[in-house]
Design a protein around this nucleic acid. Structure first.
Lengths: 246, 246
DNA sequence: TTATATCTTTTGTCTTATATAAGACTGTAG
DNA sequence: CTACAGTCTTATATAAGACAAAAGATATAA
């Protein structure tokens, strides 16, 4: 039961609906409800947290807005299946609204050490151990993207290639199921760059071919940087647009 | 005064808050309140439309979310100054969070005829008259972007270079102030392309230099396509990210 | 068996009451 | 007269409760 605000003013209690957001979020992270399984009704949640349906509703509103949940009138509220960290947000193939679902192929996962710049970005000391994960994105068999991710080893101990392969590219799910880190979407930055030798080889394009580069820093819900990722995309046949929310 | 829903069920009346959204939107479009001028209070608006404060609030919520309005607790609700059609959405210079405000330079505005493809996109017949507007984007004096817009002449009669120049790049404002067309943000598609001869010349880069290409189709609130625009950006020194909402 | 009505559960909408925030105003100590 | 602290006023923000609408599930009649 959430305590009513205002009883202890000096503690700067958060509004009830924000407390409910946290509670529900925690429950979702804890896996209390499966993906696409419906939550208890708003009224039931209200009883559980000691608030009204309207307050639960306001809380769920914001989670729906963030894409964590989705609703169907007269039916229920559901946990939004964790879309792939890649597929949602970074990659959203546009051409042909038919779902050209991308396939993701793991290239490798190695342990490296942070350079000055990376250490700075991720808020680590220089030389800190990092995992470098590289993946290839295919649509209809054709290679169209390359992705490189960097995660601090400290936050993700024992990350190995097998675990990554198991979940078909769904990094977000791995992060909270195995490491208790829930990723928020970070902002993505877009650049056009010329393909370097290695990118050209992997993407099977000519050297200096224009590639769309996406760079993102994903943070957890406390705002701490957790995953740095860069992707290079061929956009000669497909264009990309930022993922729309449900 | 908005009619209470449910009185005439068969008319499929929209919920009150949606009606309020339309009313407020119309008033904003009509210029009833200036940019950054505050609207009447939620209670007053409630009286005006014959609904409660809570309902007005729900309506304003969505307009705030869309970026049309912004709020300050204890102070009021304001019309969000129309950000430039370019600056908001298409261009959002990232590097250095200090507002490197872009300057926009008009290159020209000419009347052309729609090719098959364009006619199709804009929902016009082939050969329909179009305005082609080209603009240059500068940040700190350096040219970093080129934009080309195409608008049907039918919807924008008497569009001339002077009128465009007057409003410092603010196409959206022109659209509704002069032509009664309120643009919604359309989705933007991102591509990396090699600079063509003309782009290279205007942007002062080498031929085939990688450029970030943004393509957008802006629609009005009825969903009718109104403006087709393409932009080419140099991203060697600046990166771009989609505009965050207030 | 099939279509239709009604019941139940769930989300969606709307109002009312109250809390919180921010300026403006005002009286007072210095 | 000025600086400062209270308080008043007017905003938005939050919370609860009543009711509407939608979607299945179930029962019922042809």
């Amino acid at each position: 039961m959430i305590k009513r605000q205002g009883l202890m003013k000096k503690l700067a209690a958060q509004p009830l609906y924000k407390q409910v957001i946290r509670e529900v979020m925690t429950a979702v992270e804890a896996g209390e409800w499966h993906d696409d399984e419906n939550l208890p009704s708003e009224v039931e949640l209200g009883v559980r947290f000691g608030v009204s349906q309207g307050t639960v509703r306001k809380a769920l509103d914001s989670l729906v807005n963030e894409g964590v949940l989705y609703r169907r009138q007269g039916v229920g509220t559901f946990v939004a299946g964790m879309n792939d960290f890649l597929a949602r947000g970074l990659f959203q193939p546009l051409t042909g609204e038919d779902g050209l679902t991308p396939k993701i192929e793991l290239l490798g996962c190695v342990r490296i050490h942070a350079g000055e710049q990376l250490a700075d970005i991720l808020g680590l000391r220089r030389g800190a151990a990092l995992w470098q994960v590289r993946r290839l994105l295919r649509v209809a068999g054709n290679v169209i993207g390359l992705e490189e991710m960097l995660l601090p080893e400290a936050g993700f101990p024992n990350l190995d290639i097998r675990r990554i392969r198991e979940l078909k590219g769904n990094l977000r799910e791995l992060c909270w199921r195995d490491f208790g880190i829930r990723l928020r979407d970070g902002e993505v930055r877009y650049r056009a760059v010329a393909a370097s030798q290695s990118e050209a080889r992997l993407l099977m394009v000519d050297l200096n071919e224009p590639l769309l580069q996406l760079v993102r820093l994903a943070r957890d819900f406390e705002g701490k940087p957790q995953v740095w990722s860069v992707a290079w995309l061929k956009t000669d046949t497909l264009a990309f647009e930022p993922a729309p929310f449900a």
